[in-house]
């Protein structure tokens, strides 16, 4: 097993005819993902790398049975795309787009309420179940199939972490980038819950960062519900307060969002904290006693 995506995933690419959309469609196909449909309004009937393009998500789902979607649509139209996917009944929507206005995301969350859909992101690298399926922009080749679940708010720091794990011979069940925005579809707790229930996942790596209190929520959940080993690193311990560190959500405001508070909460919940970001893999290896 793995979580959220596997061999049965049938992927729709929204914004498939754009530069990033077509580039990553090709990478996903090369990795072995079943990309069954693309969608760009006005480009229906075209093909991108052999993938049929539709004008609406509804028709794409009807014709191809797509059960997951990845969105490469510019910020001004991304909220609309997420809602269109949810309306068409797609259960898993992954939004890569960075820079969607907050008010638009508030409308999205209001729209998604009560609908049977999971949104991952926005402003995220997507997710990968190594050896099975890739729905994201990460380089597939640094991954290795295995038993460690990875969940992170970052993109490249996750690649760094995964490369450390793979380099030490430690494979991954699924790696989920939940995104760097403050308003996310899926948070740490959601993914921890899935990893806890997943038989293939034996240990969990959680990469957090400054801003908000999502890591504290995760700590509480770990304490209450997770009996698997959790190894964590929180980025931004040396970040100045009041500054947005690249990610829209990575900001210490007043007393909220400091790395130290997150580290203390996770540590108190039993998570093992990596001493620095270069030794996350090493910390996992030591903890697993490989």
């Amino acid at each position: 097993m793995s979580i959220l995506i596997d061999e049965k995933t049938r992927l729709l690419v929204q914004g498939i005819t754009g530069g990033e959309g077509s580039f990553h469609t090709q990478r996903c196909i090369e990795y072995g993902t079943k990309v069954v449909a693309g969608m760009t309004p006005g480009k229906g009937g075209a093909q991108v790398f052999g993938v049929p393009v539709f004008n609406t998500v509804e028709s794409a789902v009807r014709e191809t049975g797509a059960n997951a979607s990845i969105i490469f649509v510019p910020p001004s139209g991304a909220a609309d795309s997420i809602m269109e996917a949810a309306d068409a009944g797609i259960p898993l929507v992954v939004c890569i787009t960075e820079g969607i206005p907050v008010m638009d995301m508030i409308s999205v969350h209001s729209f998604l309420k009560g609908k049977p859909v999971r949104l991952i992101g926005p402003n995220c690298p997507g997710l990968i179940s190594p050896g099975k399926c890739k729905v994201g922009i990460m380089a597939g080749e640094i991954h290795k199939q295995g038993n460690v679940g990875v969940v992170s708010r970052s993109g490249t720091l996750t690649y760094e972490t995964v490369a450390q794990l793979t380099g030490l011979g430690i494979g991954q069940s699924t790696c989920v980038g939940i995104g760097g925005d403050p308003l996310l579809g899926t948070n740490f707790v959601d993914v921890l819950k899935l990893f806890q229930e997943d038989e293939e996942t034996k240990a969990i790596v959680l990469i957090g960062e400054i801003g908000g209190t999502m890591e504290q929520d995760a700590a509480q959940f770990i304490k209450d519900k997770v009996n698997k080993l959790v190894i964590s690193f929180i980025a931004g311990a040396s970040a100045p307060p009041g500054r947005r560190m690249g990610h829209a959500g990575a900001i210490i405001s007043g007393n909220t969002g400091k790395a130290q508070d997150k580290i203390e909460a996770l540590s108190a919940a039993g998570a093992i904290i990596a001493p620095n970001p270069a030794e996350i893999g090493k910390t996992v290896k030591k903890s697993l006693k490989y």
Binding site: T156, L157, A235, M245, P275, P277
Partner: peptide, 17 residues
């Protein structure tokens, strides 16, 4: 000079370490 916000933050932390 780093690519990605999370990794860029991690670099600051690692330098500090």
């Amino acid at each position: 000079m780093v690519n990605g916000a999370g990794l860029a933050m991690a670099v600051l932390d690692l330098i500090n370490y």
